[in-house]
């Protein structure tokens, strides 16, 4: 086993890669959350046609690997003539992909509220909008928070896949360093440690949220 000397010369490069990973993940998580919420609401309250369209969308996303979709967009973008930078291309794919899973988490949160809560709100003469805003959503969001955090962790991990289609972030950076230094064990371990720090911090936050949810019930 070689020493960790290669790491000393390249850690700054890896840190910059980690920064790119975080930037990419945060840029994707915002539209993913908004779209996910929209899909969840449309699936609960939408017309029959809307509902089946969303069910179909979720079925397809759940059944196809993210890597396939990323590669597809990578090969497709140049063909369509759309002038979209690759960064925004992968952000779009990540957002559309995780929106499907987020909508399922949000929907489960809303549907797991007991019927009595809806009845109570209705019996107080609340309009549907008011009822959702002050009774249903606050409770559903608390229930959906832990799975939401897990999805965010998965999204951060999934950004590593964009290195396969040639984008630069932490995984790509570590591969470049490995090619220069020929020290895969140390470098990939260092990259893994960086991913771990980012994801585990989120996981701890998720645990904290979960405890708060449990206390509330």
């Amino acid at each position: 086993m070689k020493t960790f000397a290669p790491l000393l010369h390249s850690y700054w490069y890896l840190f910059r890669g980690a920064g790119m990973t975080v930037l990419m993940a945060t840029t994707a998580v915002v539209p993913a959350t908004l779209l996910g919420a929209l899909l969840a609401l449309a699936q609960i309250f939408g017309s029959r046609a809307t509902r089946s369209a969303i069910v179909g969308y979720i079925f397809i996303i759940r059944g196809i690997p993210l890597l396939v979709l990323l590669t597809f967009v990578y090969y497709l973008l140049p063909l369509t003539g759309v002038d979209l930078p690759p960064f925004w291309g992968v952000v779009l794919v990540l957002a559309c992909y995780y929106a499907a899973f987020m909508s399922e988490a949000f929907r489960a949160g809303i549907l797991s509220l007991p019927q009595a809560q809806w009845d109570a709100a209705k019996s107080l003469g609340m309009s549907r909008r008011l009822m959702l805003r002050i009774v249903i959503f606050p409770q559903a969001l608390r229930l959906a928070a832990p799975p939401f955090i897990n999805l965010c962790i998965n999204l951060i991990k999934a950004t590593s896949l964009v290195s396969i289609v040639g984008l630069w972030e932490l995984t790509m950076a570590s591969r470049e360093v490995v090619e220069r230094t020929l020290a895969p064990f140390q470098i990939f371990l260092a990259a893994a440690a960086m991913y771990f720090c980012i994801c585990y911090a989120l996981a701890l936050y998720g645990k904290y949220l979960e405890r708060r949810v449990l206390v509330g019930h």
Binding site: M1, K157, F188, A192, A203
Partner: peptide, 23 residues
């Protein structure tokens, strides 16, 4: 459990594939 859940599969695969052959 925490380590494998909080690091990407791809990196784990690189460690196993490139790293183990080196040792």
């Amino acid at each position: 459990i925490q380590i494998v859940r909080n690091t990407p599969l791809l990196i784990q695969m690189y460690i196993v594939y490139f790293g183990l052959s080196l040792v």
